[in-house]
Simulated assay, not measured.
Amino acid sequence: MDWIGLIIQLVLGAVGGNVGGAVVKNSSLGSTGNSIVGAIGGIVLGQILSSLTGGAVPPADPAAAAAATGGIGAIIQNVVGGGVGGAVLQVIAGLIKNSMSKA
Rank of each mutant, 00 (worst) to 15 (best):
K97M: 13
A65Y: 03
G71K: 05
S50Y: 01
G71N: 08
A74T: 13
G55D: 09
G70P: 08
G94P: 03
G55C: 01
G73Y: 02
V57D: 15
G85E: 10
G54E: 06
G83P: 02
K97L: 13
L49T: 11
I96L: 12
Q47C: 12
G86F: 10
N78C: 09
V57S: 14
Q47M: 12
G83R: 01
G73D: 10
G83I: 10
V57R: 12
V88C: 03
P59Y: 08
G85T: 04
V79C: 07
V80Q: 07
G94H: 04
I96G: 08
G54K: 08
I48V: 11
Q47I: 11
G46P: 00
A93H: 07
A68Y: 09
A87V: 08
A56F: 00
L52G: 12
T53D: 13
V57K: 15
G82E: 08
G82T: 04
G94D: 09
G55F: 04
Q47D: 13
A68M: 12
G55I: 01
V91I: 15
A63S: 14
G85Y: 05
P59I: 06
G86C: 08
L95P: 00
L45G: 01
A65V: 05
L45P: 02
G70K: 10
G71E: 05
V91F: 01
G55W: 04
G54Q: 07
S99L: 13
I92S: 05
L45I: 04
D61N: 14
D61K: 04
G85I: 08
V91D: 03
P58T: 07
P58E: 11
D61T: 03
A60Y: 03
I76D: 12
Q77C: 13
G46V: 05
G73R: 02
L45R: 05
G71L: 00
G82I: 06
Q77F: 04
A64M: 06
Q77H: 09
I76S: 14
G70N: 14
D61W: 03
I48P: 00
T69V: 15
I72G: 12
G73L: 00
S50Q: 13
V79A: 11
A74V: 12
G70A: 15
S99M: 12
V80A: 11
N78Q: 14
P62G: 05
A87P: 02
G82Y: 06
G85D: 07
V84M: 07
I48H: 03
S99H: 11
A67T: 09
I43V: 15
Q90V: 04
I72F: 11
V91S: 10
D61S: 07
L95E: 12
A66S: 14
S50M: 14
V91P: 03
S50T: 12
I48K: 04
V57Y: 06
G73K: 00
T53H: 10
L52W: 01
N78H: 07
V44I: 13
A74I: 11
D61P: 04
L95M: 11
T53A: 14
